[in-house]
């Protein structure tokens, strides 16, 4: 049902995807890049949902959740971009390291 491709491959792809996203989140200076990293991580999660949803034949819950997650990711991106926009207006930068107002 996975067209002969074993489940492990999917999981590995997903893990690689997630790790790449995480790396991006932790290492990028630009807030946009961090946002892209977050998107990668969400999509890794959605991929897992779809893959594991294949074993749930009756109700297609995995795919439904995947759809939800996509919608939520889109909403998250919208909110995050709004935040980034506001941060830029406030601090004239989109680098999180430059925005240290909340430390201590």
């Amino acid at each position: 049902m996975l067209n002969g491709i074993p489940l492990e491959h999917f999981v590995i792809v997903s893990a690689v995807l997630f790790s790449a996203g995480l790396f991006s989140v932790l290492s990028r200076k630009n807030a946009i890049m961090i946002l892209i990293g977050i998107e990668l991580m969400i999509n890794a999660g959605i991929l897992n949902l779809v893959v594991f949803g294949a074993f749930d034949k009756q109700k297609n819950e995995g795919q439904v959740f995947a759809l939800f997650a996509i919608v939520l990711a889109a909403a998250g991106v919208a909110v995050a971009l709004a935040i980034i926009l506001n941060v830029y207006r406030q601090f004239k930068t989109v680098e999180p390291n430059q925005v240290e107002e909340m430390k201590y």
């Binding site: 932790l26 999180p96 925005v99 240290e100 430390k103 201590y104």
Partner: peptide, 14 residues
């Protein structure tokens, strides 16, 4: 620990 750096928090969390 309260550096105000979001990525550091994230890294620590991970």
């Amino acid at each position: 620990f309260q550096t105000g750096r979001v990525q550091q928090y994230m890294a620590l969390g991970v």
